[in-house]
Amino acid sequence: MIAVVDYKAGNLTSVMKAVRTAGADLGVEPVLTDDPAVVLLSGKIILPGVGHFAATQFLEKHGLKAAIREKIAAGVPFLGICVGLQWLFAGSTEAPECAGLCALPELCDRFAPGRKVPHVGWNSLSLRPGSRLFAGIPDGSFVYFTHSYRAPLTNATVAVTEYGEPFSAAVECGNIMGVQFHPEKSAETGLRLLRNFLELPPC
């Protein structure tokens, strides 16, 4: 079972539809949930999210953070999308009072001034080799972004995008994965990425 975690940060209709489409012939039925007990039963976890980093406080308050942490430690594949990627880090200057999961030690920060923010639209990926998430996706592929804060480059970075500065478009560290862009809105490239995630062996 694939848990799509709903922490009341925006609309998840598109994510559910894309996961269903990407996994149509795999018998995948994603479950939208805000219940830690459901998360604890899942074989894969997707944490979508748009909007403000402060929304991730819901995860802590409702026991979802602890449940996700437990599942990640057990080796369950995890995919964070947009704010879901940023949450993997220690935190974000967007909401300094909220701690992230701290799976990665760095902090997310706002784009440096000098260009339009948010960064909205289709931008290209510069891929680092060895990623399972990007298997079969050509280097230079375009994906759809919409965000004002970004994660820095780290050892876990598997895709780099430039917007005035290079930032982490995707991270992958064992079973922990995150994408800053929206695979559910990135046409064939996004569906392929979701498919790659759905095909990972469950723990």
Partner: peptide, 24 residues
Amino acid sequence: LFVPFTVGGGIRTADDAAAVFDAG
């Protein structure tokens, strides 16, 4: 559709917007 999709026309409240988001 798996590209961004915007809808306009007759949206007067946050509830109207919610219904449009729910519709996709």
